[in-house]
Nucleic acid binder design. Structure first.
Lengths: 211, 211
DNA sequence: ATACAAAGTCACTAAATAGTGATAATTATA
DNA sequence: TATAATTATCACTATTTAGTGACTTTGTAT
Protein backbone atom coordinates (compact mmCIF):
# COMPACT_ATOMS: atom_id res chain seq x y z
CA UNK A 1 0.00 0.00 0.00
CA UNK A 2 1.23 3.46 -0.91
CA UNK A 3 0.04 6.77 0.46
CA UNK A 4 1.35 6.60 3.99
CA UNK A 5 1.57 9.94 5.70
CA UNK A 6 4.35 11.36 7.80
CA UNK A 7 3.96 10.35 11.39
CA UNK A 8 2.00 12.56 13.70
CA UNK A 9 4.32 14.90 15.49
CA UNK A 10 2.14 15.47 18.51
CA UNK A 11 -0.08 13.06 20.36
CA UNK A 12 -3.60 14.34 20.16
CA UNK A 13 -6.66 12.16 20.17
CA UNK A 14 -8.91 14.60 18.34
CA UNK A 15 -6.32 15.28 15.66
CA UNK A 16 -5.79 11.57 15.22
CA UNK A 17 -9.49 10.91 14.92
CA UNK A 18 -9.63 13.55 12.23
CA UNK A 19 -6.70 11.92 10.44
CA UNK A 20 -8.66 8.67 10.29
CA UNK A 21 -11.73 10.44 8.99
CA UNK A 22 -9.64 12.22 6.36
CA UNK A 23 -8.01 8.95 5.40
CA UNK A 24 -11.43 7.41 4.76
CA UNK A 25 -12.31 10.30 2.47
CA UNK A 26 -9.00 10.08 0.65
CA UNK A 27 -9.34 6.36 0.03
CA UNK A 28 -12.99 6.67 -0.95
CA UNK A 29 -12.06 9.22 -3.61
CA UNK A 30 -9.03 7.34 -4.87
CA UNK A 31 -10.37 3.81 -4.88
CA UNK A 32 -14.06 3.72 -3.99
CA UNK A 33 -15.90 2.39 -0.99
CA UNK A 34 -15.00 -1.24 -1.61
CA UNK A 35 -11.38 -0.33 -0.93
CA UNK A 36 -12.01 0.91 2.60
CA UNK A 37 -9.93 -1.61 4.60
CA UNK A 38 -8.78 -0.97 8.14
CA UNK A 39 -5.17 -1.63 7.24
CA UNK A 40 -5.22 0.83 4.37
CA UNK A 41 -7.12 3.45 6.35
CA UNK A 42 -4.58 3.21 9.16
CA UNK A 43 -1.65 3.35 6.73
CA UNK A 44 -3.14 6.37 4.98
CA UNK A 45 -3.72 8.09 8.30
CA UNK A 46 -0.17 7.23 9.36
CA UNK A 47 -1.42 5.72 12.60
CA UNK A 48 -1.95 2.27 14.03
CA UNK A 49 -5.22 0.56 13.21
CA UNK A 50 -5.68 -0.31 16.88
CA UNK A 51 -6.66 3.32 17.40
CA UNK A 52 -9.59 2.89 15.03
CA UNK A 53 -11.06 0.35 17.45
CA UNK A 54 -10.14 2.49 20.44
CA UNK A 55 -11.51 5.77 19.13
CA UNK A 56 -14.43 4.73 16.96
CA UNK A 57 -15.26 1.21 18.02
CA UNK A 58 -14.38 -0.38 14.70
CA UNK A 59 -14.14 0.06 10.97
CA UNK A 60 -17.85 0.42 10.31
CA UNK A 61 -18.30 2.94 13.08
CA UNK A 62 -15.46 5.01 11.64
CA UNK A 63 -16.94 4.86 8.17
CA UNK A 64 -20.38 5.80 9.46
CA UNK A 65 -18.92 8.75 11.31
CA UNK A 66 -17.12 9.82 8.17
CA UNK A 67 -20.34 9.82 6.15
CA UNK A 68 -22.16 11.68 8.90
CA UNK A 69 -19.41 14.29 8.93
CA UNK A 70 -20.23 15.23 5.35
CA UNK A 71 -22.63 18.04 4.73
CA UNK A 72 -23.62 18.33 1.12
CA UNK A 73 -26.74 20.36 1.63
CA UNK A 74 -25.77 23.17 3.99
CA UNK A 75 -25.08 25.64 1.18
CA UNK A 76 -28.38 24.78 -0.48
CA UNK A 77 -30.28 25.44 2.73
CA UNK A 78 -29.08 29.03 2.91
CA UNK A 79 -30.23 29.98 -0.55
CA UNK A 80 -33.53 28.30 -0.10
CA UNK A 81 -35.89 30.44 1.92
CA UNK A 82 -35.25 33.97 0.61
CA UNK A 83 -35.64 35.32 -2.97
CA UNK A 84 -38.55 36.94 -4.62
CA UNK A 85 -40.68 34.28 -6.19
CA UNK A 86 -42.99 35.95 -8.65
CA UNK A 87 -42.70 33.39 -11.41
CA UNK A 88 -43.89 30.29 -9.64
CA UNK A 89 -40.33 29.18 -9.11
CA UNK A 90 -39.40 29.01 -12.76
CA UNK A 91 -36.04 30.74 -12.48
CA UNK A 92 -35.35 29.20 -9.13
CA UNK A 93 -35.92 25.71 -10.52
CA UNK A 94 -33.62 26.29 -13.43
CA UNK A 95 -30.85 27.77 -11.36
CA UNK A 96 -31.17 25.00 -8.82
CA UNK A 97 -30.73 22.39 -11.53
CA UNK A 98 -27.77 24.17 -13.11
CA UNK A 99 -26.05 24.70 -9.76
CA UNK A 100 -26.69 21.13 -8.82
CA UNK A 101 -25.18 19.98 -12.09
CA UNK A 102 -21.98 21.91 -11.45
CA UNK A 103 -21.86 20.75 -7.86
CA UNK A 104 -22.15 17.09 -8.79
CA UNK A 105 -19.80 17.49 -11.70
CA UNK A 106 -17.03 19.04 -9.65
CA UNK A 107 -17.59 17.19 -6.38
CA UNK A 108 -16.22 13.68 -6.72
CA UNK A 109 -16.88 12.94 -3.06
CA UNK A 110 -20.55 13.67 -3.54
CA UNK A 111 -20.70 11.39 -6.56
CA UNK A 112 -19.04 8.58 -4.61
CA UNK A 113 -21.55 8.93 -1.80
CA UNK A 114 -24.51 8.96 -4.16
CA UNK A 115 -23.19 5.85 -5.89
CA UNK A 116 -22.57 4.23 -2.54
CA UNK A 117 -26.16 4.99 -1.64
CA UNK A 118 -27.32 2.92 -4.62
CA UNK A 119 -25.15 0.02 -3.62
CA UNK A 120 -25.39 -0.46 0.10
CA UNK A 121 -28.04 0.08 2.74
CA UNK A 122 -26.44 2.02 5.54
CA UNK A 123 -27.99 4.40 8.02
CA UNK A 124 -25.82 7.46 7.31
CA UNK A 125 -26.35 7.00 3.58
CA UNK A 126 -30.05 6.94 4.19
CA UNK A 127 -29.67 10.19 6.10
CA UNK A 128 -28.07 11.83 3.06
CA UNK A 129 -31.04 10.77 0.95
CA UNK A 130 -33.51 11.90 3.61
CA UNK A 131 -31.88 15.30 3.86
CA UNK A 132 -32.10 15.80 0.13
CA UNK A 133 -35.77 14.94 0.30
CA UNK A 134 -36.37 17.31 3.22
CA UNK A 135 -34.69 20.21 1.46
CA UNK A 136 -36.47 19.48 -1.79
CA UNK A 137 -39.82 19.47 -0.03
CA UNK A 138 -39.26 23.08 0.97
CA UNK A 139 -39.13 24.20 -2.61
CA UNK A 140 -41.83 21.87 -3.80
CA UNK A 141 -44.42 22.46 -1.10
CA UNK A 142 -44.11 26.20 -0.81
CA UNK A 143 -43.40 27.26 -4.34
CA UNK A 144 -44.08 24.81 -7.13
CA UNK A 145 -46.92 22.70 -5.70
CA UNK A 146 -49.19 25.74 -5.30
CA UNK A 147 -48.20 27.09 -8.69
CA UNK A 148 -48.73 23.88 -10.60
CA UNK A 149 -51.92 22.96 -8.74
CA UNK A 150 -53.27 19.64 -9.98
CA UNK A 151 -50.21 19.32 -12.21
CA UNK A 152 -47.96 19.49 -9.18
CA UNK A 153 -47.22 15.80 -9.17
CA UNK A 154 -46.31 15.91 -12.81
CA UNK A 155 -43.87 18.70 -12.11
CA UNK A 156 -42.38 16.71 -9.24
CA UNK A 157 -41.96 13.67 -11.43
CA UNK A 158 -40.19 15.68 -14.13
CA UNK A 159 -37.90 17.20 -11.52
CA UNK A 160 -37.18 13.73 -10.17
CA UNK A 161 -36.18 12.64 -13.67
CA UNK A 162 -34.02 15.69 -14.31
CA UNK A 163 -32.23 15.57 -10.97
CA UNK A 164 -31.69 11.84 -11.00
CA UNK A 165 -30.63 12.00 -14.64
CA UNK A 166 -28.22 14.67 -13.50
CA UNK A 167 -26.86 12.26 -10.91
CA UNK A 168 -26.56 9.36 -13.28
CA UNK A 169 -24.93 11.17 -16.18
CA UNK A 170 -22.29 12.65 -13.91
CA UNK A 171 -21.53 9.27 -12.35
CA UNK A 172 -21.53 7.60 -15.72
CA UNK A 173 -18.99 9.84 -17.39
CA UNK A 174 -15.68 8.14 -17.87
CA UNK A 175 -16.20 4.84 -16.10
CA UNK A 176 -17.24 2.47 -18.89
CA UNK A 177 -18.34 4.94 -21.48
CA UNK A 178 -18.11 8.56 -22.49
CA UNK A 179 -21.25 9.18 -24.44
CA UNK A 180 -24.88 8.73 -23.49
CA UNK A 181 -27.37 9.20 -26.33
CA UNK A 182 -24.41 10.54 -28.22
CA UNK A 183 -23.79 13.30 -25.67
CA UNK A 184 -20.14 13.21 -24.60
CA UNK A 185 -20.30 13.79 -20.87
CA UNK A 186 -16.55 14.22 -20.58
CA UNK A 187 -16.51 17.40 -22.64
CA UNK A 188 -17.60 20.92 -21.78
CA UNK A 189 -19.85 20.89 -24.82
CA UNK A 190 -21.64 17.78 -23.66
CA UNK A 191 -22.16 19.18 -20.21
CA UNK A 192 -23.52 22.42 -21.60
CA UNK A 193 -25.97 20.47 -23.74
CA UNK A 194 -27.33 18.71 -20.67
CA UNK A 195 -27.61 21.93 -18.72
CA UNK A 196 -29.35 23.66 -21.61
CA UNK A 197 -31.75 20.75 -21.94
CA UNK A 198 -32.71 20.94 -18.27
CA UNK A 199 -33.48 24.64 -18.58
CA UNK A 200 -35.54 24.06 -21.70
CA UNK A 201 -37.59 21.31 -20.07
CA UNK A 202 -38.34 23.54 -17.10
CA UNK A 203 -39.39 26.37 -19.38
CA UNK A 204 -41.60 24.08 -21.41
CA UNK A 205 -43.27 22.87 -18.25
CA UNK A 206 -43.96 26.37 -17.01
CA UNK A 207 -45.14 27.50 -20.45
CA UNK A 208 -47.35 24.44 -20.56
CA UNK A 209 -49.31 25.29 -17.42
CA UNK A 210 -49.24 29.02 -18.15
CA UNK A 211 -50.53 28.90 -21.68
CA UNK B 1 -22.46 -20.02 3.03
CA UNK B 2 -25.94 -21.23 2.14
CA UNK B 3 -27.37 -21.89 -1.29
CA UNK B 4 -25.46 -24.99 -2.28
CA UNK B 5 -27.01 -26.94 -5.07
CA UNK B 6 -27.57 -30.64 -5.38
CA UNK B 7 -24.57 -32.31 -6.94
CA UNK B 8 -24.47 -32.74 -10.66
CA UNK B 9 -25.70 -36.18 -11.59
CA UNK B 10 -23.79 -36.42 -14.84
CA UNK B 11 -20.31 -35.25 -15.66
CA UNK B 12 -20.54 -32.77 -18.46
CA UNK B 13 -18.15 -29.91 -19.01
CA UNK B 14 -20.58 -27.66 -20.88
CA UNK B 15 -23.33 -28.20 -18.33
CA UNK B 16 -20.90 -27.48 -15.53
CA UNK B 17 -19.68 -24.30 -17.18
CA UNK B 18 -23.28 -23.21 -17.44
CA UNK B 19 -23.82 -23.98 -13.77
CA UNK B 20 -20.98 -21.65 -12.88
CA UNK B 21 -22.36 -18.92 -15.11
CA UNK B 22 -25.79 -19.37 -13.56
CA UNK B 23 -24.28 -19.27 -10.09
CA UNK B 24 -22.67 -15.92 -10.86
CA UNK B 25 -26.02 -14.53 -11.91
CA UNK B 26 -27.74 -15.92 -8.87
CA UNK B 27 -25.21 -14.43 -6.48
CA UNK B 28 -25.16 -11.14 -8.32
CA UNK B 29 -28.91 -10.83 -7.92
CA UNK B 30 -28.99 -11.96 -4.33
CA UNK B 31 -25.97 -10.12 -2.98
CA UNK B 32 -24.48 -7.79 -5.55
CA UNK B 33 -21.21 -7.90 -7.45
CA UNK B 34 -19.05 -7.36 -4.38
CA UNK B 35 -20.22 -10.76 -3.13
CA UNK B 36 -18.88 -12.69 -6.09
CA UNK B 37 -16.27 -14.89 -4.38
CA UNK B 38 -14.89 -18.06 -5.94
CA UNK B 39 -15.83 -20.14 -2.94
CA UNK B 40 -19.41 -18.92 -2.96
CA UNK B 41 -19.74 -19.25 -6.71
CA UNK B 42 -18.49 -22.84 -6.54
CA UNK B 43 -20.76 -23.67 -3.60
CA UNK B 44 -23.76 -22.15 -5.40
CA UNK B 45 -22.93 -24.11 -8.55
CA UNK B 46 -22.51 -27.24 -6.46
CA UNK B 47 -19.10 -27.89 -8.01
CA UNK B 48 -15.50 -27.56 -6.98
CA UNK B 49 -13.86 -24.20 -7.45
CA UNK B 50 -10.90 -25.82 -9.14
CA UNK B 51 -13.08 -26.20 -12.17
CA UNK B 52 -13.47 -22.44 -12.41
CA UNK B 53 -9.74 -22.18 -13.02
CA UNK B 54 -9.77 -25.14 -15.37
CA UNK B 55 -12.75 -24.10 -17.48
CA UNK B 56 -12.55 -20.32 -17.43
CA UNK B 57 -9.03 -19.49 -16.36
CA UNK B 58 -10.04 -17.83 -13.12
CA UNK B 59 -12.67 -15.86 -11.28
CA UNK B 60 -12.46 -12.72 -13.34
CA UNK B 61 -12.58 -14.59 -16.61
CA UNK B 62 -15.70 -16.40 -15.43
CA UNK B 63 -17.35 -13.15 -14.38
CA UNK B 64 -16.45 -11.52 -17.67
CA UNK B 65 -17.93 -14.42 -19.57
CA UNK B 66 -21.08 -14.17 -17.48
CA UNK B 67 -21.50 -10.50 -18.36
CA UNK B 68 -20.83 -11.17 -22.02
CA UNK B 69 -23.48 -13.89 -21.98
CA UNK B 70 -26.14 -11.34 -21.13
CA UNK B 71 -28.09 -9.77 -23.93
CA UNK B 72 -30.24 -6.92 -22.79
CA UNK B 73 -30.75 -5.30 -26.15
CA UNK B 74 -31.71 -8.11 -28.49
CA UNK B 75 -35.43 -7.51 -28.09
CA UNK B 76 -35.00 -3.79 -28.67
CA UNK B 77 -33.11 -4.38 -31.89
CA UNK B 78 -36.04 -6.24 -33.44
CA UNK B 79 -38.55 -3.49 -32.86
CA UNK B 80 -36.21 -0.83 -34.05
CA UNK B 81 -36.12 -0.68 -37.82
CA UNK B 82 -39.76 -1.23 -38.80
CA UNK B 83 -42.81 0.88 -37.96
CA UNK B 84 -44.37 3.71 -39.81
CA UNK B 85 -42.71 6.92 -38.68
CA UNK B 86 -44.89 9.77 -39.79
CA UNK B 87 -44.68 11.81 -36.60
CA UNK B 88 -40.93 12.36 -36.39
CA UNK B 89 -40.63 9.58 -33.86
CA UNK B 90 -42.91 11.09 -31.25
CA UNK B 91 -44.88 7.95 -30.47
CA UNK B 92 -41.87 5.75 -30.90
CA UNK B 93 -39.89 7.83 -28.40
CA UNK B 94 -42.63 7.69 -25.83
CA UNK B 95 -43.18 3.98 -26.17
CA UNK B 96 -39.46 3.33 -26.05
CA UNK B 97 -39.21 5.22 -22.77
CA UNK B 98 -42.21 3.50 -21.25
CA UNK B 99 -41.06 0.06 -22.31
CA UNK B 100 -37.59 0.78 -21.04
CA UNK B 101 -39.04 1.85 -17.72
CA UNK B 102 -40.90 -1.42 -17.30
CA UNK B 103 -37.90 -3.41 -18.44
CA UNK B 104 -35.58 -1.78 -15.92
CA UNK B 105 -38.18 -1.92 -13.22
CA UNK B 106 -38.82 -5.63 -13.57
CA UNK B 107 -35.33 -6.76 -14.54
CA UNK B 108 -33.16 -6.79 -11.43
CA UNK B 109 -30.26 -8.32 -13.31
CA UNK B 110 -30.20 -5.38 -15.68
CA UNK B 111 -30.23 -2.94 -12.79
CA UNK B 112 -27.31 -4.71 -11.15
CA UNK B 113 -25.30 -4.58 -14.35
CA UNK B 114 -26.03 -0.90 -14.88
CA UNK B 115 -25.01 -0.16 -11.31
CA UNK B 116 -21.91 -2.27 -11.72
CA UNK B 117 -21.08 -0.24 -14.78
CA UNK B 118 -21.01 2.91 -12.67
CA UNK B 119 -18.72 1.30 -10.15
CA UNK B 120 -16.09 -0.62 -11.97
CA UNK B 121 -14.26 -0.31 -15.27
CA UNK B 122 -14.46 -3.67 -17.00
CA UNK B 123 -14.43 -4.52 -20.66
CA UNK B 124 -17.70 -6.47 -20.84
CA UNK B 125 -19.46 -3.71 -18.90
CA UNK B 126 -18.17 -1.21 -21.40
CA UNK B 127 -19.60 -3.41 -24.12
CA UNK B 128 -23.06 -3.18 -22.54
CA UNK B 129 -22.79 0.60 -22.58
CA UNK B 130 -21.47 0.64 -26.14
CA UNK B 131 -24.31 -1.54 -27.34
CA UNK B 132 -26.86 0.75 -25.81
CA UNK B 133 -25.23 3.66 -27.58
CA UNK B 134 -25.14 1.82 -30.89
CA UNK B 135 -28.83 0.94 -30.71
CA UNK B 136 -29.78 4.42 -29.61
CA UNK B 137 -27.93 5.92 -32.53
CA UNK B 138 -30.23 4.06 -34.90
CA UNK B 139 -33.25 5.86 -33.59
CA UNK B 140 -31.51 9.19 -33.17
CA UNK B 141 -29.74 9.42 -36.51
CA UNK B 142 -32.51 8.14 -38.72
CA UNK B 143 -35.59 9.48 -37.08
CA UNK B 144 -35.22 12.24 -34.53
CA UNK B 145 -32.07 14.03 -35.71
CA UNK B 146 -33.61 14.85 -39.11
CA UNK B 147 -36.90 15.80 -37.53
CA UNK B 148 -35.45 18.11 -34.89
CA UNK B 149 -32.89 19.64 -37.23
CA UNK B 150 -30.75 22.16 -35.39
CA UNK B 151 -32.57 21.25 -32.18
CA UNK B 152 -31.44 17.65 -32.54
CA UNK B 153 -28.76 17.91 -29.90
CA UNK B 154 -31.25 19.40 -27.48
CA UNK B 155 -33.56 16.46 -28.08
CA UNK B 156 -30.70 14.05 -27.54
CA UNK B 157 -29.78 15.75 -24.29
CA UNK B 158 -33.35 15.56 -23.01
CA UNK B 159 -33.51 11.90 -23.93
CA UNK B 160 -30.21 11.32 -22.14
CA UNK B 161 -31.72 12.91 -19.03
CA UNK B 162 -34.95 10.94 -19.23
CA UNK B 163 -33.31 7.59 -19.86
CA UNK B 164 -30.60 8.04 -17.26
CA UNK B 165 -33.15 9.40 -14.80
CA UNK B 166 -35.08 6.26 -15.57
CA UNK B 167 -32.03 4.19 -14.69
CA UNK B 168 -31.29 6.06 -11.52
CA UNK B 169 -34.80 6.13 -10.10
CA UNK B 170 -35.21 2.41 -10.61
CA UNK B 171 -31.89 1.67 -8.95
CA UNK B 172 -32.62 4.08 -6.14
CA UNK B 173 -35.93 2.62 -5.09
CA UNK B 174 -35.71 0.78 -1.83
CA UNK B 175 -32.00 0.87 -1.08
CA UNK B 176 -31.60 3.88 1.18
CA UNK B 177 -34.78 5.72 0.43
CA UNK B 178 -38.21 5.31 -1.08
CA UNK B 179 -39.09 8.77 -2.30
CA UNK B 180 -37.31 11.05 -4.72
CA UNK B 181 -38.76 14.55 -4.97
CA UNK B 182 -41.63 13.11 -3.00
CA UNK B 183 -42.36 10.48 -5.64
CA UNK B 184 -42.54 7.06 -4.00
CA UNK B 185 -40.70 4.81 -6.41
CA UNK B 186 -41.78 1.67 -4.57
CA UNK B 187 -45.45 2.15 -5.39
CA UNK B 188 -47.35 1.67 -8.60
CA UNK B 189 -48.60 5.22 -8.31
CA UNK B 190 -45.09 6.63 -8.13
CA UNK B 191 -43.98 4.61 -11.11
CA UNK B 192 -46.97 5.74 -13.13
CA UNK B 193 -46.16 9.35 -12.29
CA UNK B 194 -42.66 8.95 -13.67
CA UNK B 195 -43.91 7.26 -16.81
CA UNK B 196 -46.52 9.93 -17.35
CA UNK B 197 -43.92 12.63 -16.86
CA UNK B 198 -41.65 11.12 -19.50
CA UNK B 199 -44.48 11.05 -22.02
CA UNK B 200 -45.40 14.64 -21.25
CA UNK B 201 -41.84 15.86 -21.68
CA UNK B 202 -41.58 14.13 -25.04
CA UNK B 203 -44.85 15.65 -26.18
CA UNK B 204 -43.79 19.10 -25.03
CA UNK B 205 -40.54 18.75 -26.98
CA UNK B 206 -42.34 17.75 -30.16
CA UNK B 207 -44.97 20.46 -29.71
CA UNK B 208 -42.15 22.89 -29.13
CA UNK B 209 -40.46 22.32 -32.47
CA UNK B 210 -43.77 21.86 -34.30
CA UNK B 211 -45.49 24.96 -33.09
C1' DA C 1 11.84 13.47 39.27
C1' DT C 2 8.39 10.45 39.27
C1' DA C 3 4.23 8.44 38.77
C1' DC C 4 0.17 8.12 36.30
C1' DA C 5 -2.90 8.33 32.34
C1' DA C 6 -3.41 8.84 27.72
C1' DA C 7 -1.64 8.07 23.04
C1' DG C 8 0.39 5.11 20.20
C1' DT C 9 3.00 0.77 18.45
C1' DC C 10 3.90 -4.02 17.67
C1' DA C 11 3.37 -8.69 17.15
C1' DC C 12 0.21 -11.72 17.17
C1' DT C 13 -4.47 -14.64 16.27
C1' DA C 14 -8.32 -15.77 13.57
C1' DA C 15 -11.11 -15.76 9.63
C1' DA C 16 -11.93 -15.20 4.83
C1' DT C 17 -10.43 -15.62 0.24
C1' DA C 18 -7.74 -17.03 -3.96
C1' DG C 19 -5.42 -20.40 -6.00
C1' DT C 20 -3.08 -25.26 -6.87
C1' DG C 21 -1.06 -30.24 -6.85
C1' DA C 22 -2.33 -34.82 -6.13
C1' DT C 23 -5.79 -37.97 -6.68
C1' DA C 24 -10.32 -40.14 -7.14
C1' DA C 25 -14.48 -41.06 -9.88
C1' DT C 26 -16.66 -41.36 -14.14
C1' DT C 27 -17.06 -41.81 -19.07
C1' DA C 28 -15.65 -43.14 -23.55
C1' DT C 29 -13.35 -46.28 -26.38
C1' DA C 30 -10.36 -49.79 -28.13
C1' DT D 1 -13.34 -55.33 -19.83
C1' DA D 2 -9.04 -52.91 -19.74
C1' DT D 3 -7.34 -48.41 -20.33
C1' DA D 4 -7.00 -43.75 -21.58
C1' DA D 5 -9.04 -39.29 -21.14
C1' DT D 6 -12.03 -36.38 -18.92
C1' DT D 7 -14.53 -34.62 -15.05
C1' DA D 8 -14.51 -33.60 -10.48
C1' DT D 9 -12.96 -33.61 -5.56
C1' DC D 10 -9.99 -32.88 -1.69
C1' DA D 11 -6.58 -31.19 1.05
C1' DC D 12 -3.41 -28.07 1.03
C1' DT D 13 -0.68 -23.26 0.60
C1' DA D 14 -0.51 -18.40 0.36
C1' DT D 15 -2.46 -13.94 0.87
C1' DT D 16 -5.43 -10.60 2.59
C1' DT D 17 -8.17 -8.72 6.05
C1' DA D 18 -10.17 -7.79 10.73
C1' DG D 19 -9.34 -7.62 15.23
C1' DT D 20 -6.72 -7.82 19.97
C1' DG D 21 -3.37 -8.27 24.13
C1' DA D 22 0.85 -6.71 25.74
C1' DC D 23 3.81 -3.34 25.42
C1' DT D 24 6.26 1.44 24.79
C1' DT D 25 6.24 6.36 24.46
C1' DT D 26 4.80 10.83 25.78
C1' DG D 27 2.62 14.51 28.29
C1' DT D 28 1.41 16.24 32.69
C1' DA D 29 0.17 16.85 37.55
C1' DT D 30 2.14 16.24 41.98
Amino acid sequence: MEGEKTKATVRNKEKSKQRFLDAVGELLLAQGFSALKVNDIAATAGLDKKLIYKYFGGKDALIDEYIRSLDFWSNVKKENAPQEIADGGREFSKQMLLKQFDYINTNAEFRKIILWGLTESREPLKRVADEREAIGEELLIHITDPYFGKEAEMYRAVMALLISGNYYLNMYAGVNGKTFCGIDMTTTKGKEQIKKAMAIVVDLLYDHVTG
